[in-house]
Design a protein around this nucleic acid. Structure first.
Lengths: 207, 207
DNA sequence: TCGCGGACTGACCAGATGGTCAGTTCATTG
DNA sequence: CAATGAACTGACCATCTGGTCAGTCCGCGA
């Protein structure tokens, strides 16, 4: 049983969430650096000062926004990856959830990729380091699954991390097209194409 | 024979080039939006105002800088892609040049990727559209080569553009690791890993 | 009904940054 | 040597934006 939260706490959390959602929309529309606090406040229908009642500063707002969404996404994908099905099936399911998530949360995409290459001095960059790590988590997790499959002899042996990066970024390419060019398509098709290319390659076999 | 250029023109072009190189270094160090005109001027060893003698505004400086470098990179890669060797060989050579280029021009990398997801209003974004196109060029070119290979029966038939995107982004992943984590390695190794994964996949074949 | 206090507002401030331009430097030329 | 003007400088300006805070609003309890 969850501790019964007072009405105030519920309202408070609701505000936080709606501010985060507004931030996601604005960042998606204008880009990470171009999205101003004023923009986000207007999008959320509050005054700029109100945001500072719920978040210490701009960085905290962006960080928390990113954190919530990425936790949701990674949770869904990990669940699929952790089953005991064969690699092919696990990859397919995990990719399916990835595409599904980005189809539901198109806004999140820009925020997501803007964290891959944090800007600013190395000093400033340290603050974003943890968020960059969240991105890397997914790759490391995937590398673990791949290494396991190598141990079982399902795939050939090679550097698992590098292979995971190749797969993860290649997958992103498809997401990029879907989100940026607004070409809706069944997640199944995309997932299938990636899995089969990854596992079997594209070369025609000569009998 | 090139039209003999006057001494002034030579000096002028030299200045432009050294300003562009300074811009590349600063952008690589501080990031696209954090790099100020003051920073770039200091890096080039001139006063801020001097930059405006050679470039209309900040946008033009960045655009021209990007343009020069990307033309160089694409030129090198296209040359490799356009030979009449089998696909495998062409891919290998092209990737080799890509890795080589980024090893020589680490600075360019941040500028390169920052153009993939232009920020700003859709209205402002239009100015960057052409630069975004330069990025896409490479993918389209690659897609053409892949389609040709499909026609010849070298690889199985599928959406060539999507396949090219997958390959191009997957390749970027490796470049990212090399450039960001500063782990030098022979371009040959990376290129070989990508080509073999792409062509043959990773699944162990059962006889 | 009154008054309390937390939620909210938005004018305001300080710092940063792109861009300007009046003034300076200096090689060239008559 | 003096005059010229192109190259260059850097103080200055206008604007923008993150963050502040004195004041307003409003629901609720006495």
């Amino acid at each position: 049983m969850l501790p019964s939260r007072s009405k105030e706490e519920v309202v408070h959390e609701f505000r936080i969430q709606s501010l985060q959602e507004a931030a996601m929309r604005v960042i998606a529309r204008k880009g990470m650096t171009a999205a101003t606090m004023q923009d986000i406040a207007e999008e959320a229908g509050v005054a700029k000062g109100t945001i500072y009642l719920y978040f210490k500063d701009r960085d905290e707002l962006v960080e928390k926004t990113f954190e919530s969404a990425v936790t949701e996404l990674h949770g869904r994908m990990d669940e699929a990856l952790e089953s005991d099905a064969p690699l092919e099936e696990r990859l397919r399911r995990s990719l399916h959830r990835l595409f599904e998530f980005f189809r539901e949360n198109r806004e999140f995409f820009r925020l997501y990729i803007s964290h891959r290459f944090p800007e600013g001095d190395p000093q400033q960059r340290r603050r974003q380091h943890r968020q960059c790590e969240r991105y890397r988590e997914r790759t490391v997790k995937l590398a673990g699954v791949l290494e396991e499959a190598m141990d079982r002899g399902e795939i050939r042996r090679m550097d698992p991390l590098r292979l995971a990066m190749f797969l993860a970024e290649g997958t992103n390419a498809i997401v990029i097209e879907r989100v940026m060019d607004e070409t809706p398509q069944e997640p199944e098709t995309d997932a299938e194409m990636i899995v089969s290319t990854f596992l079997d390659g594209v070369r025609t076999k000569r009998s």
